[in-house]
Simulated scan of single mutants.
Amino acid sequence: MAIYTKGGDKGKTSLFDGLRVEKDSIRVETYGTFDELNANISLADKFCKSEKNKKILQTVEYRMFYLQGEIATKDTEKFLKQSQFITDDDTRSLEKIIDDYTQALPPIHSFILPGSSTAGAQLHVCRTICRRAERSFVKLSKSIEFRPELERYVNRLSDFLYIMARSEDYEDLIDDVTEKVIKVYSKIEDGRKDE
């Protein structure tokens, strides 16, 4: 079975509820940017050193499908009847992670470079894509009313990605310091054996 339908050959695409719209519409731009974000979150989770962070990001990846699906539907009620959707529990989950990680990480008092580790750098890429998606979402919200639960979730995502980036950078730093300490200790032990 072919993956192409030819339905979009004239510059239109179908929304979740079957409505045909122009491919360059702000709605398509918005859910398309969140799709780009989700692909980048998937890449980030492959770079993560922390298994806990990988699992957290994978959970968010699934939530992104619900987010995109709702944005890609004109008839919100139809979507809510046929799919899982973002709730305030999802937002509270992000907030708990943000709060817990902020508490656990060393405080910072200035701007930081976007990532000292591969995972951290990729998560900062995610954060910037998320900001772009959020700008499109806000623009779209001027003509289309979305559920407040969806708006709150979108508003927390970039803060979540920022703290995840900091967490991965810290994990990388701890691993680096640990490796250096082990090397120094090994040299000391080797020196003792030679005595």
Results as ranks from 00 to 15, higher is better:
160 F>K: 12
110 S>L: 08
157 L>Y: 07
129 I>S: 10
124 H>D: 15
104 A>F: 01
157 L>W: 06
128 T>V: 07
147 R>H: 06
106 P>S: 08
142 K>F: 04
151 E>P: 05
115 G>R: 05
143 S>W: 01
155 N>C: 09
148 P>I: 02
120 G>M: 09
136 S>H: 15
135 R>F: 06
86 I>V: 03
150 L>K: 08
105 L>P: 06
140 L>Q: 07
158 S>I: 02
134 E>I: 03
102 T>E: 13
158 S>A: 14
147 R>T: 02
135 R>K: 12
145 E>H: 07
123 L>M: 11
133 A>M: 09
84 Q>E: 11
86 I>W: 02
152 R>P: 04
154 V>S: 06
109 H>P: 07
129 I>M: 13
104 A>C: 08
120 G>I: 03
123 L>H: 04
94 L>A: 05
108 I>V: 06
134 E>C: 08
82 Q>P: 05
146 F>E: 15
116 S>G: 05
84 Q>N: 12
91 T>E: 10
145 E>D: 13
87 T>P: 12
135 R>I: 05
155 N>G: 07
148 P>L: 13
136 S>C: 14
118 T>H: 04
93 S>H: 05
120 G>A: 08
87 T>V: 02
92 R>W: 00
97 I>Y: 06
142 K>Q: 10
118 T>M: 15
128 T>E: 08
110 S>I: 00
88 D>S: 11
129 I>Y: 06
100 D>V: 01
114 P>R: 08
148 P>T: 01
133 A>V: 01
99 D>V: 01
149 E>Y: 00
145 E>I: 03
89 D>S: 09
156 R>K: 15
143 S>A: 13
150 L>F: 02
104 A>L: 12
118 T>E: 15
98 I>L: 09
123 L>V: 01
115 G>K: 03
120 G>H: 02
109 H>K: 15
126 C>N: 09
153 Y>R: 13
156 R>I: 00
85 F>N: 15
91 T>G: 07
103 Q>E: 11
100 D>I: 00
141 S>C: 06
99 D>W: 01
161 L>S: 08
111 F>A: 13
133 A>L: 07
93 S>V: 00
130 C>I: 01
118 T>R: 14
104 A>G: 04
137 F>E: 04
